[in-house]
């Protein structure tokens, strides 16, 4: 077990390094750099002549060879020196200390909602016997997956904030401002969970041990919640691990629509202004969340299904076998 965890952490470090490196060179390959936006060349109020740009570039160290910049940035990051935003001059640490909690709050609330809604919907879909209702219930998640969240977001704003004035339209102040973005962000993930769990429950309910439980006289609901659910949950868990990444990605849109500050919001602006210290950190942050959540998911497998042995060498093989079963 310990050996397994250590190896996974080793993998995680590799993933983070790869994400960092890829981002660094992608940023470098893009046209333009932070000196242009810092001088505000594209804005109507800029009065900087192109000649002055060279000076700004050298002040920012952007005129040095790319490898020198890369290793210096990597070294600084490893030592915890994340630098300052090239645009606003704010230390990157401060920027993230202010925004990470808000994004985790949003993504966490959305994940919780996604699990509750997705599970409830799947159980309901399988429990209902009347075929038309069952089909109808089965179609809704497909809709939920395919509708983009900026659309649901704007519709939710229009009705729940502007017309009925139930929730504030923007901001991060208090719980009421969290409800709309969390619900909107949860819809696609909840739909995926509902789809997977429905399918998985149907498969489990068709397996022989269910017949045994039925023969012992258990009620439908008891069979569903007590016996089938636990045996059907593993593929959903894997999907929820992936969802963590989607939630961080989705928070970019949700934070824009609902004017929440957070990592997504910072990312958009940093990319727009080629604010490389900030972009680098957002990528590393997103990769960290993804890696950590997936590690937790893998560890949860053992808890949910004691038959799984994590020490087995072909780790992914064991996991895949169970997921396919």
């Amino acid at each position: 077990m310990l050996q397994y965890v250590l190896r996974r952490i080793g993998h995680a470090v590799l993933v983070l390094w790869a994400a960092f490196t890829a981002t660094f060179f992608l940023l470098y390959a893009l046209p333009g750099d932070a000196s242009l936006t810092r001088a505000g060349i594209g804005s109507d109020s800029s009065q900087v002549s192109p000649q002055q740009l060279a000076q700004i570039r050298s002040e920012l160290g952007l005129d040095r060879p790319v490898l020198v910049q890369y290793f210096e940035t990597l070294g600084n990051t490893l030592r915890g020196h994340l630098g300052r935003s090239l645009q606003s001059g704010t230390p990157v640490k401060k920027l993230f200390a202010e925004s990470v909690p808000s994004t985790l709050e949003l993504a966490g609330a959305a994940l919780l909602l996604a699990i509750v809604l997705g599970f409830a919907w799947a159980v309901l879909t399988v429990y209902v016997r009347w075929e038309p209702a069952r089909t109808a219930l089965g179609t809704v998640p497909a809709l939920g997956v395919s509708i983009p969240i900026f659309w649901t977001g704007l519709i939710a704003l229009d009705w729940l904030s502007f017309r009925w004035r139930l929730f504030p339209a923007f901001g991060n102040s208090g719980f009421s401002s969290l409800v709309l973005p969390a619900v909107v962000l949860a819809i696609p993930s909840a739909s995926v969970a509902a789809q997977l769990l429905t399918r998985s429950l149907e498969t489990t309910l068709a397996s022989p041990f269910i017949a045994t439980v039925q023969a012992k006289g258990a009620s439908r609901l008891r069979i569903l919640l007590g016996h089938a659910l636990r045996n059907s949950v593993l593929p959903v868990l894997t999907a929820l691990g992936m969802t963590a990444g989607h939630l961080i990605g989705g928070s970019v849109v949700a934070e824009a629509v609902f004017t929440r500050s957070g990592v997504g919001d910072i990312t958009v602006r940093a990319v727009d202004f080629q604010d490389s210290p900030v972009v680098l950190f957002t990528v590393v942050f997103a990769a960290t969340v993804f890696v950590v959540v997936n590690l937790i998911v893998d560890l949860l497998y053992v808890v949910i299904d004691p038959r799984i042995q994590l020490t087995a060498a072909p780790r992914a093989g064991a996991r895949l076998q169970r997921a396919a079963a």
Binding site: P31, G32, D33, L36, T37, I41, G42, P50, D272, F273
Partner: peptide, 11 residues
Amino acid sequence: PTDAFDKALST
């Protein structure tokens, strides 16, 4: 995009 526009103007 903003950055590419900036670049186009300055060059």
